[in-house]
Design a binder for these strands. Structure first.
Length: 594
DNA sequence: TAGAAGTGTCATGCG
DNA sequence: CCCGCATGACACTTC
């Protein structure tokens, strides 16, 4: 840009090439080619300033819209993700973001040569998207600008129009451009040749039943000026708007189906393909074959429009069973064919991606996956943010809906709080809270597993029901092997967990009881010791008294001569009948020796 | 950072 | 033989 500050005295071919390169680089910023001309240098600063203000305003608007979108989202307590309360609420934000994506896209559209990958198809959709979403009624200024043959009078129009339609010849010549038509047809053929897309046929009824969410009602009027660079498509828009059914279904389904983030991430020059599509429409109109609503709905673009919805496997609800494996395989990477659910006669319990995804995991593997951050379940939830709710719908049978309603009620009524299953949660240091939180985490994991396999009764029932009731419920439902194994595991673990808790409780109670017994026995011992001391004391006293009495009695004894007996030679002995005899100690010793 | 405490789970024995 | 329960042992987390 520094070189451009110099006056372009005589631009050479090299300078022109450089200008062309710079212009192509700045095209996404809204710079027109003529701004590189010195005569437009004065306007450049003002236009850049104005564009900066517009860009800031646009970003602010986008932030507000995203904020409003987040306000319209509700937190899925099971998956921890934000899911829209109404599916069509993406549109408003999608419009702005898509437009931004177009503004910010710097990569040219890849030519549609060779086989298209799924990402290329998505990019193609994203490139096609601005044409679809920009269907707001042109404002008076906008219409005047469109029909004004002297757009130079409006500098804004000059900038936006010429900046964002760098190849107006494409638009002008598209009506007779057969090569472009062939390219488009080839693109669509290749697009439809992709196995993932072959099942993406949506009937027109389902499309017309899409909740219509008109952008006209939601788009702020000041954004019209920002989107004025879609002028070449205004005619197409008017044609589309003239057909309200097509307009509504086409735009609403596309905008509702396309995630905003994906559109923001998709890059590519949308103008080329937009012009080609426009050419297609214009050409058909010229040839008298302007597509009707039904035609448009059966067009490849309508199938593409419905693709994101189908990528969420809404079409797996039994309407297109033949294509379900491809769709599931394409996204989850887990083969449904390996699952016995495919042949299960049950009410398509295992038909969901969730169930199949979980089926091939053993319980221990699921445990590992659960405990790991970014587990499979969580990733599935991220990959299919609406999948979980769709799975719970169970449109196959009313009884199944009742079951799942019962399941939902049971799960919601179960004494669990949806806490993160990750082990690193922050809890209060109180043991009771920690205990309950771990219990809840365990309960949540089992609940998630049960929900993943669509087990139609709650974990609480699995664990706490009596054996007879449990077997009765098990016999009432047609469950596959995975479901039975999971139910048995959950019940076994739950029972054993309660048993372990009871066991530990009993162990603690036994310890406390034994401590009490020990204290009691210690008291008893002390008491007995005191009693023993008392007895010993009394015994010594009696012994002392007895000795004194013995001496007194022995001293009063006299022999035949009146002499006292010597205590060393005689002693007193008492017989059993109570008589007392004076026995000589020699005799006593002799009797002992005898 | 080592250790204690709490908890879940598995394996095993017993009734 | 099967099932439920009790319990030791182990792993893991938290403090």
């Amino acid at each position: 840009m520094l070189e451009l500050e110099l006056p372009p005295a005589q631009p050479t071919q090299q300078d022109m090439d450089l200008i062309d390169i710079l212009w192509r680089q700045d095209i996404d910023l809204g710079a027109g080619r003529e701004v590189f001309d010195y005569s437009h240098r004065q306007k450049e600063y003002e236009l850049a300033k104005q564009k900066k203000l517009e860009k800031e305003r646009l970003e602010e608007l986008q932030r507000e819209q995203e904020k409003a979108l987040l306000a319209q989202l509700q937190l899925d307590e099971e998956t921890g993700e934000f899911v829209p309360i109404l599916p069509a609420q993406h549109i408003e934000t999608g419009t702005t973001c898509i437009s931004n994506a177009c503004l910010q896209s710097k990569e040219p559209l890849q030519p549609a040569g060779g086989a298209l990958s799924f990402d290329e198809c998505m990019q193609l959709l994203a490139d096609t998207f601005p044409f679809v979403v920009h269907n707001e009624p042109p404002s008076a200024t906008f219409q005047q600008l469109v029909h004004d043959s002297c757009p130079e009078s409006d500098p804004v129009f000059i900038t936006t129009n010429q900046t964002l339609t760098p190849e107006p010849s494409v638009l002008q010549n598209t009506g007779a451009d057969v090569d472009n038509m062939n390219d488009i047809d080839q693109v669509w053929e290749e697009l439809l040749s992709i196995p993932e897309l072959q099942c993406l046929h949506i009937e027109s009824d389902s499309l017309t039943q899409v909740d219509i969410f008109s952008i006209q009602d939601t788009k702020p009027p000041e954004t019209a000026e920002n989107y004025s660079f879609y002028n070449p498509m205004s005619l197409v828009e008017k044609e589309i708007n003239s057909n309200p059914v097509f307009h509504n279904t086409f735009t609403s389904s596309f905008t509702s189906a396309m995630p905003v983030e994906d559109l923001n991430h998709l890059k590519g020059d949308p103008l080329h393909l937009v012009d080609e599509l426009y050419t297609t429409f214009i050409d058909r109109k010229v040839n008298g074959s302007m597509p009707t609503t039904s035609d448009l709905l059966t067009e490849p673009i309508s199938e593409l429009v419905a693709m994101p919805d189908l990528s969420l496997c809404k079409a797996f609800n039994g309407e297109k069973p033949a294509c379900a494996p491809e769709c599931t395989d394409s996204d989850s990477g887990i083969s449904v064919n390996a699952s016995p659910n495919a042949a299960s006669p049950g009410p398509s319990l295992g038909s969901s991606l969730y169930g199949d995804a979980s089926y091939n995991y053993s319980d221990s593997e699921m445990e590992d996956l659960d405990s790991a951050p970014g587990s499979v379940l969580q990733n599935h939830s991220e990959m299919h943010p609406l999948q979980f709710q769709e799975d719970l719908a169970y449109p196959s049978s009313p009884s199944h809906e009742l079951k799942m309603q019962q399941f939902d009620v049971e799960v919601k009524n179960s004494p669990k709080k949806e806490v993160p299953a990750s082990p690193g949660y922050n809890r209060s240091p109180f043991a009771k809270d920690k205990y309950s939180s771990r219990l809840e985490a365990r309960f949540t994991r089992d609940t998630q597993r049960a929900k993943a396999l669509q087990i139609p009764f709650s974990v609480d029932n699995m664990i706490n029901l009596p054996v007879d009731d449990f077997n009765e419920i098990m016999s009432k439902h047609q469950l596959n092997e995975a479901q039975l194994a999971l139910i048995r595991d959950i019940r076994r673990r739950g029972k054993n967990k309660v048993a372990a808790q009871n066991c530990r409780k009993r162990k603690l109670e036994n310890i406390v009881e034994l401590e009490h017994d020990l204290d009691h026995l210690k008291d008893e011992k002390d008491k007995l010791l005191a009693e023993k001391g008392e007895y010993n004391k009394n015994f010594q006293l009696l012994k002392k008294q007895l000795g004194a009495l013995y001496l007194e009695v022995f001293s009063q004894l006299r022999d035949e001569d009146g002499n006292p007996y010597s205590p060393t030679e005689y002693s007193l002995q008492q017989t059993r009948d109570g008589n007392v005899f004076l026995v000589p100690k020699t005799l006593k010793t002799e009797n002992k020796t005898d």
